[in-house]
């Protein structure tokens, strides 16, 4: 009997609480540090680091896919952007300490910082494929083949997993019969995408200070509504 009483009061509190939440939806969830309130018609402190094609350093302001997204977001919020360049390590530390409001660095959901800061849900998924130069015969397997890969990435590792040899190039595709690249890169080189030879998937995210849930939700909602813009920017 006592248990039933306790449980039913729990349930009542729960239902009441939920109704209260739904009624006051616009102010829920809240930011412990009021980031969203501060950046609206205020200053948006954005940390950036070079990560082409996501973030391309420019003369005054960074260019590329993520800066373009940030500029439309700032316009939507009526915010002025304060760009802060730096190394990824320093910028993530600053973000964790709430000294930045947003960090763009071509970050994916595999980032080792994912438990320290808030990451948005992936706003775009990109895939690295093997592409074949025009006029080459199509292949079903990479076994024993040589694939041109960019220097300074982990693509070579995935090529070796297919029992193929990576050939490191500073400039791609450089006339190689097989080359690794994102969908849009293959397209611009005129290479045929080999759909069965998918090397790597990347889920791109943006980073915000930890626990600023109203701000995170506002940013994610913006990204969700601008999926079409993202795909346009990728082309």
């Amino acid at each position: 009997m006592k248990l039933v009483l306790i449980s039913s009061s729990f349930l009542l509190a729960l239902v009441g609480g939920l109704l209260g939440l739904l009624a006051g939806n616009s102010h829920y969830p809240k930011d412990p540090n009021d980031t969203l309130k501060r950046v609206q018609h205020g200053t948006l402190r954005v940390g950036y680091t070079r990560a082409e094609p996501w973030v391309v350093p420019g003369l005054q302001e960074p260019q590329g896919i993520e800066p373009a997204l940030v500029r439309s977001l700032a316009q939507r919020l009526g915010a002025r952007i304060e760009w802060v360049g730096g190394t990824e390590q320093h910028l993530f530390e600053a973000l964790k300490a709430h000294e930045l409001d947003l960090l763009i660095a071509g970050t994916t959901d595999e980032s080792p910082w994912k438990t320290e800061v808030g990451l948005t849900r992936p706003y775009v998924e990109t895939t690295v494929y093997v592409g074949a130069a025009p006029g080459t015969t199509l292949i079903a397997s990479l076994k024993g083949q040589t694939v041109a890969v960019p220097l300074g990435t982990d693509i070579g590792h995935f090529v070796r997993q297919h029992d193929a040899q990576p050939a490191y190039r500073a400039q791609l595709p450089g006339g190689a019969p097989l080359a690794a690249g994102y969908e849009w890169q293959l397209q611009s080189w005129g290479y045929r995408r080999l759909n069965n030879l998918e090397l790597k998937k990347e889920n791109h995210v943006l980073a915000v200070p930890p626990g600023e849930n109203a701000w995170l939700l506002a940013l994610e909602t913006f990204l969700y509504q601008h999926q079409a813009q993202v795909h346009q920017l990728l082309r």
Binding site: L18, Y28, R121, P210, G211, N213, L217, T221
Partner: peptide, 23 residues
């Protein structure tokens, strides 16, 4: 002082706060 981040979830095409989904 770890601060849990809970953001957006999309349920059947509707964007909602993921906290509601957890509840």
């Amino acid at each position: 002082g770890e601060r849990p981040s809970i953001g957006l979830a999309v349920v059947l095409g509707y964007p909602i706060w993921a906290g509601y989904l957890m509840i």
